Structure formats: structure tokens, C-alpha cells
Amino acid sequence: MPTPDPIDHRIDPHAPATIGERVTRILGVVARDPVARAELDMARVLEELRLLGAQPIEDCTPEEARRQPSPADAVSSLMAKYGIPESDDDVTTRDATYDSGGERLGLRIYRPAAGAEPRPIVVYYPGGGWVLSNLDDYDASARAIAGRAGATVVAVETRRAPEHKFPAAHDDAVAAYAHVLEHAADFGGSPDLVAVAGESAGGNLALNVAIAARDRGLTPPTHLALIYPIAGVDMTAPSFKINEFARPVNKAVIEWIFGHALMSAAEKDDPRLDLVGRADLSGLPATTLLTAEIDPLRSEGLQLGERLREARVVVNGVDFEGVAHGFFGMGDLVRHARTAQDIVGRDLSAAFAVDGRGIRVGRAL
């Protein structure tokens, strides 16, 4: 029996579920499809990604996967179909470069129009599993952080696997952070008010940058914002089982990522990858940690929060039900994404405040 097309492109994106959407959800529940647990706005984005022709990443070569429609493309497509204009975030951008190991790599600087300089700076590492990392695909996330935190966001390009395997991206991430500290005035900011944020594999990079800053005597970040980070290597964790066939990221995708990013399976023992099992997490700044229900990385994200608290790090952990990995930048369509962006912006703003730095703000929802 063919699956009905659940999207009526004439409806408002926030309208109740159509008959087709209801039937699809019932079929998904019967088949134990993790996407059947998605909120309607999230499910519509995932369905649009399918309609755009995205194939399972685990069935693609890295080159094929990079050419595929992305979740950001699905959001843009739905916004065009619904006639929704892009958000007027009043954030301007310009591109720059930094040096890592003799190679010039890209930076994209996001500056909100409101507020006077010097502004705080957020060094942001996009996702993509160290293989698909792309500044364009994560543009909405960087813009949202800049607008809500009132900070200059410097989004960082790192070398990608399999052309440059582990630890190339990790080395680049630290080099980019050191570059921002050295050139903070050029970005209209202060080296004493620099936070670090990252999404998925970028969340892993962000946490490793904070650890490197502690161990190498660099100015420590004011705050950490970790958005469904890759924090471990145990693929028998509960969320890997529950979300084995989730979209757009599932167990096979994470296996594909490690397969392309690492020289050998033995590298999984490196504490930069097994953060929850082998890393020293003491002495790190207060952290905002977001996880998503329909995400194989959920269990290790929750475990990371526990490990950080055991290390006496202040953590504001928020777990979002009904959304999938990658939801953070979908604020124009997904309501939980807007809430997540508000939380990150609020926590960063509080950390940047002279009297509020390091103090836990907000509550887990």
C-alpha cells in the first residue's frame, strides 16, 4: 500500500494535521517508525526532505551526501510553498579566513545591528559529522544565536573527512578559537567575553575547545552551548536502539560518520571522541546542553550532562520531545526550535553579563 503524501501545500504550516498526515502517523506507529513520535511541524520538515529526493546518507559516498538536499533545504522549500518570508533578523555577515597548519580555512562573521561594540563573541562550530560540515547549511543556527544573544558569532569552517581524517577538524577548531582570541578586536569584540557553541559534531568540537583552552593556558570560554553533541562512541545506548531507523540521523548514519572520519576503530578510545567515558571534564565553564528525543545521540547527551555535573560544572540541560536531530536551526517552522534558540540566547546573554557570568540561568523545561 503506497504511503499517502501527508503534505497539503495549500495549508498554513501551523494548521492541524491533514487526513493524509494522520494516516501516515498511524502507519508509522504500527511500524514503530521513530518519526511517528515527531511533532507535526517537525514531521512536515522531514517529509519535505524526503520529497526533495534526499537518500539515506549511509547509502551515499561523502561526495554524494554533500550534493544531497539538506534539512535546511527542506525548511527553505516549505517556506516558499507556504509563502513565509525569511525572518528579518537584522544580522549582517561577512567572510574571513584563519590559518590552521598552514592552510587557510573559512570564517563567517554574523553581527547583529543592535547594540554597541565591543560585543561579546560566540565561536560557533556547525554540524555535519566532520564529513558534511557546511557553513551555508547551518546559517540559520548562527543567525539565531547572534540575534538572541546580542553577540557577534564567528562560524568556523574545519577540514572535512575523509579527505582529512581525525583529528584534523579538532586541530582546526582549537586554531580557530585561538585566532578569535587574538583578533577579537577585529571582530568588534573582547577576548574576555568569548563563548563557544556547537551543533552535533560541532558540539563535540566546542567541548574539546574548552578542554584544550583549560589544558593549554588559553583564555577559557565564558560559556559553552552544546546542541545535541556527539559525546561518546557507545552505539548500544538506549537512544541508538529506539532511534535506530530515525531520520535524518540514525544509528547507520553515525556508523557511516565514524567510518569516514577515523583512520581506524581504535581511535574511538581517544578522549576527544569518547567524552563521556574518557575525558577530564573538570574546570569547564557553565554549560547549556540541549538534546532531542528522535536522535540516536540523546542518551550520550544526557550522560554528558551527568558527567559534567559530577565534575562540578553548572549545567542547564533541556531535553526536547517530538523533534529530531538537526532541529535547532528550524525556528521559522518548528516551535521547539524557537524555544531552543531562546534558551541558548538567554543563557549566553546572562553569561556575558558582568554580574551573571558563570551563574546557572533558566530551568530545564
Score class of each variant (00 low, 15 high):
181 L>Y: 13
204 N>T: 01
190 S>Q: 10
26 I>F: 15
16 P>W: 09
290 L>T: 00
164 H>T: 00
48 E>Y: 05
241 K>H: 04
359 I>N: 15
240 F>K: 08
291 T>F: 13
227 I>Q: 06
7 I>E: 12
289 L>A: 07
111 R>M: 09
329 G>M: 04
309 R>D: 12
80 A>V: 04
71 P>V: 08
196 V>F: 09
358 G>P: 00
179 H>P: 11
93 T>M: 11
339 T>N: 12
192 D>E: 09
53 G>E: 14
82 Y>W: 08
295 D>C: 01
109 I>N: 15
78 L>T: 05
298 R>N: 10
93 T>W: 13
343 I>R: 03
153 V>N: 07
62 P>M: 15
71 P>F: 15
323 V>N: 11
7 I>C: 10
313 V>T: 02
132 L>K: 01
345 G>V: 00
252 A>F: 14
172 D>L: 03
246 A>C: 07
311 A>R: 00
109 I>E: 15
12 D>K: 10
225 A>G: 04
211 I>L: 03
80 A>T: 05
91 V>M: 13
44 R>F: 03
22 R>E: 13
65 A>I: 02
281 L>P: 00
30 V>W: 14
12 D>I: 02
228 Y>V: 02
153 V>T: 03
252 A>C: 14
316 N>R: 13
54 A>H: 13
254 I>L: 10
305 G>F: 10
182 E>L: 11
19 I>A: 15
312 R>Q: 05
284 L>P: 00
79 M>Q: 09
191 P>E: 02
289 L>G: 09
259 G>I: 00
170 H>W: 10
226 L>F: 04
55 Q>D: 05
163 E>G: 03
119 R>T: 09
194 V>S: 14
201 A>S: 12
152 T>D: 11
72 A>Y: 05
334 V>L: 08
305 G>D: 05
347 D>V: 05
212 A>H: 00
365 L>E: 07
125 Y>A: 09
254 I>S: 10
231 A>C: 11
338 R>Q: 09
172 D>S: 03
56 P>G: 13
20 G>E: 12
311 A>D: 01
186 D>I: 03
124 Y>C: 08
260 H>D: 06
70 S>F: 06
50 R>C: 07
55 Q>G: 08
151 A>N: 04
323 V>G: 14
83 G>H: 08
243 N>I: 04
130 W>V: 00
27 L>V: 01
4 P>E: 14
205 L>Q: 02
66 R>E: 06
226 L>W: 04
61 T>L: 13
219 T>L: 08
95 D>R: 15
269 D>G: 12
151 A>S: 04
246 A>W: 10
324 A>C: 06
299 S>W: 12
86 E>P: 11
182 E>M: 11
215 D>Q: 03
282 S>T: 00
104 R>T: 04
326 G>Y: 04
235 M>A: 13
212 A>K: 00
3 T>S: 15
348 L>P: 02
27 L>S: 06
299 S>R: 07
265 A>E: 08
355 D>L: 07
19 I>T: 07
202 G>F: 06
315 V>S: 13
67 R>S: 07
93 T>N: 12
362 G>V: 00
9 H>I: 04
346 R>W: 07
199 E>W: 07
69 P>M: 12
142 A>V: 02
55 Q>A: 10
269 D>M: 07
247 R>N: 08
329 G>V: 00
173 A>R: 05
274 D>V: 06
62 P>I: 04
235 M>V: 01
44 R>A: 05
162 P>Y: 04
